[in-house]
Design a protein around this nucleic acid. Structure first.
Lengths: 209, 209
DNA sequence: GACCGCTGACCGACCGTTCGGGTGGGAGGA
DNA sequence: TCCTCCCACCCGAACGGTCGGTCAGCGGTC
């Protein structure tokens, strides 16, 4: 598997990444199961069997795509942990980082979020997702304990609702629109932390009264 | 189609609803495309061909299931509109109502949220979903205009993020757990309207300073 | 000339769907 | 009460088509 393109010998053609990009786009459009190797080959402009020169199976294509999304998400957690500081600040980094990963790697993350766990490859991906969720939940707990977040809500419910909001971006966000990733991350954090209610509305008055 | 069971003639067996429940559960487990009529028949304890006595096609099963979910969601909007009052109060009704529909009709709503629009049936369902989203967005706009919701966020982004949060419930909520529908609706509304930040935290102080 | 990229024919399995025929039980007349 | 008829219900076999995957060999490029 040539890492450096200048070392590639023989007839030039697709490499794994090129096929991967087209495959992931097709998987997202039709769904993984409904995408046949036939239409995939058609989109690539080559024969079905040519794909098997680059990947051993349809499953392996999915595996690579899911790994790219999961690695990026796990990297966000690593970065936040490395940054240190208050749990609330680290959580802020995770939320904004997750939005950026989602925007930057929209196709593979979209694919990841639709995995249901029918094959071994899918089950492994789901387990990595659950591990990610557990770490986020722990971060929320920590932030509640330090007094940064309200404690009347269960930490795992908070983590799930917040990431449910973030993950739902794949349903409608499309690159090239008016929304940039930074602006989107601001909006998500604004809703999650401060809510939608008018700041001068009854709730703040309640607190003062 | 016998409405009254006492009127049913002939050999007793499955009716459409019984098959529908099993089918929707299987669709959610494996995905619609990956669920073959064969395994569906196996789960029902029937032959494949017996299913075609109750439905004309696999597509029709999907159509019925999606309609049940969409009708329930549209009913929530109707009820809120009928209730009248401030837009913010009607929005509150819609959010809580949507959570209840999601919990009460978890299987069919789950199915609806995974539709991608590959067949004509799926495209029709998607269009009804978009119409629903447009009405929610309009409600958010109205609530912003009356001063109940902060206006620094785009109404359609607010509507999408909020329903992204609600819809994500299908990913983890399971009946019979510690969370009741009412409690869940309270949590969702709490996060969406008031946010996660500690009420006594810096933001309120910022407002006062 | 070595090797990489690719082709086209082909495989067995399984897909959704059809069809002709069997079967069992509620309803109505005797 | 019993018999009989009808029909909702269901089966097994088979259809054409498509699925993921294999293999032997051809051709371009370093």
């Amino acid at each position: 598997m040539p890492e450096n393109t200048s070392l590639r010998r023989g007839r030039p053609g697709y490499d794994q990444q090129g096929i991967l990009d087209v495959a992931v786009a097709a998987f997202n459009e039709y769904g993984y199961d409904a995408t046949s190797m036939g239409v995939l080959a058609e989109r690539l402009g080559l024969s079905k069997s040519a794909i098997y020169h680059h990947f051993t199976s349809k499953d392996e294509i999915l595996d690579r795509a899911l790994d790219s999304a999961l690695a990026a998400l796990e990297g966000v957690l690593e970065d936040a942990d490395a940054a240190g500081g208050r749990a609330a600040d680290r959580l802020d980094l995770v939320l904004r980082g997750a939005v950026h990963v989602l925007v930057d790697r929209l196709p593979s993350v979209t694919l990841l979020l639709r995995v249901r766990g029918n094959t071994e490859v899918e089950r492994r991906a789901l387990e990595r997702r659950r591990a990610f969720d557990r770490r986020v939940t722990a971060l929320v707990s920590e932030a509640q304990a330090e007094g940064s977040l309200r404690s009347d809500l269960d930490a795992s419910v908070v983590a799930r609702l917040t990431f449910g909001m973030i993950n739902s971006l794949v349903e409608w966000y499309r690159p090239g629109g008016t929304e940039t990733a930074d602006r989107l991350a601001d909006d998500v954090v604004a809703v999650a932390l401060d809510g939608l209610r008018m700041p001068t509305s009854n709730r703040v008055e309640d607190l003062l009264g």
